[in-house]
Amino acid sequence: MRSLADGQGSKTHTVGDVLDRYQREVSPQKRGKRWEIYRLELIGNKEIDGKPFRAIRLADLKVQHITAWRDARLREVSGASVSREMCLLSHALKVARDEWGWLITDPMKPVRRPPDSRPRARRISEAEVAAITAALGYQEGLPVALPKQRVAVAFLFAIETAMRSGEILGLTSQAVDLTARVAHLPLTKNGGARDVPLSSRAVELLQLLPAVEEGEPLFNLTNSSRDALYRVGRDRAAVGDVTFHDTRHEAITRLAKKIPVLDLARMTGHTNLNELMTYYNASAAEIARLLV
């Protein structure tokens, strides 16, 4: 039975307290903790009615707050992404209710999950690449120093390698063998390690970055700063809805014309070729040009 004290934490704790404690105590037990911590930060920092979602007291948390958060996120990312974030938020609130006694009811229960949207098929043209990188202050052949310029290099590197943003930002000098042209990822989104072959252009891009202390991330950027700076550059470039993750679609579509599909799956970390296909977005005209 619940004690009379159950739910008292709702008067003193906020949504942010739930997310922070979950991040400290629950997320480290999971293989994908890096990605989960990033998602928890996105969830908490989303503004609802002029203030961060994380600032809402649990005692004041209503279905309307969660639906407003859901709808705000749907304007930024796909329904599938929002659904995954809702699953994470739901579990965090469940732990707060069942284990910490901070809640009595489940505020997520009445909230409808968004339907999975169709997979994105957004390609990035060379003109858009040039516009985005220029808006971020990157010029070919000139030194890279400012954070926004490192974001531009990360953007170009993503198109060369099909690596995710978090994988790129986690790279250190120990993880990259420039001679062998291989980047080692000790822990990926799928929970395992992966070695990513690097093109000569990818190596060239890494060599543009300013030197960092041994063991420190080569790009010296956080996920949140990368995201914010990229959005500013993209909007300034006026290229529409190009997301950073669209680089994975573009890279996989380009790489599919260069290497066999099994090698491509190994490079990108896909164990299911059907999942890999969702990132392959070549047009019929492009495929026709490959035919004799």
Results as ranks from 00 to 15, higher is better:
52 P>F: 06
44 G>R: 04
289 R>I: 03
230 Y>K: 01
238 A>S: 14
132 I>M: 10
103 L>A: 13
174 Q>E: 15
18 V>H: 10
8 Q>S: 11
167 E>L: 00
158 A>F: 05
271 T>P: 00
244 F>G: 06
101 G>V: 08
270 H>Y: 04
131 A>H: 05
163 M>A: 03
64 Q>E: 13
227 D>Q: 14
268 T>P: 00
203 V>Y: 01
22 Y>S: 10
252 I>K: 00
264 L>G: 02
142 L>V: 08
184 H>Y: 09
41 E>N: 09
207 Q>L: 15
145 A>S: 12
48 I>P: 05
36 E>H: 03
161 T>M: 00
149 Q>E: 15
135 A>L: 08
43 I>Q: 09
42 L>W: 11
87 C>W: 04
15 V>F: 07
164 R>Q: 12
198 L>S: 04
261 V>R: 09
144 V>G: 04
34 R>K: 11
64 Q>G: 05
114 P>Q: 15
195 D>H: 02
58 L>A: 10
130 A>M: 05
64 Q>I: 11
31 R>Y: 01
97 R>I: 06
269 G>I: 01
84 R>N: 10
117 S>K: 09
88 L>W: 07
81 S>Q: 09
226 R>P: 06
153 V>H: 01
182 V>G: 00
226 R>H: 15
68 A>R: 10
163 M>E: 01
287 I>L: 15
74 L>A: 07
280 Y>G: 03
271 T>L: 07
131 A>P: 08
136 L>P: 08
26 V>Y: 14
155 F>N: 02
48 I>A: 06
120 R>F: 13
31 R>H: 07
207 Q>M: 12
208 L>R: 14
167 E>G: 02
209 L>Q: 09
21 R>Q: 15
10 S>D: 07
279 Y>P: 02
118 R>I: 13
58 L>P: 03
177 D>A: 02
73 R>K: 15
230 Y>L: 03
54 R>Q: 12
43 I>T: 08
71 D>S: 03
223 N>S: 12
211 A>G: 03
2 R>K: 13
120 R>E: 13
163 M>T: 01
77 V>N: 07
75 R>F: 03
193 A>Y: 00
276 L>G: 04
124 I>D: 05
268 T>R: 00
167 E>S: 02
147 P>Q: 07
71 D>P: 01
49 D>M: 10
103 L>S: 12
85 E>Y: 07
201 R>F: 01
8 Q>D: 13
152 A>Q: 10
178 L>I: 13
72 A>V: 11
147 P>E: 11
238 A>N: 13
292 V>P: 14
151 V>D: 10
176 V>L: 02
225 S>Y: 11
276 L>H: 03
72 A>W: 04
79 G>C: 07
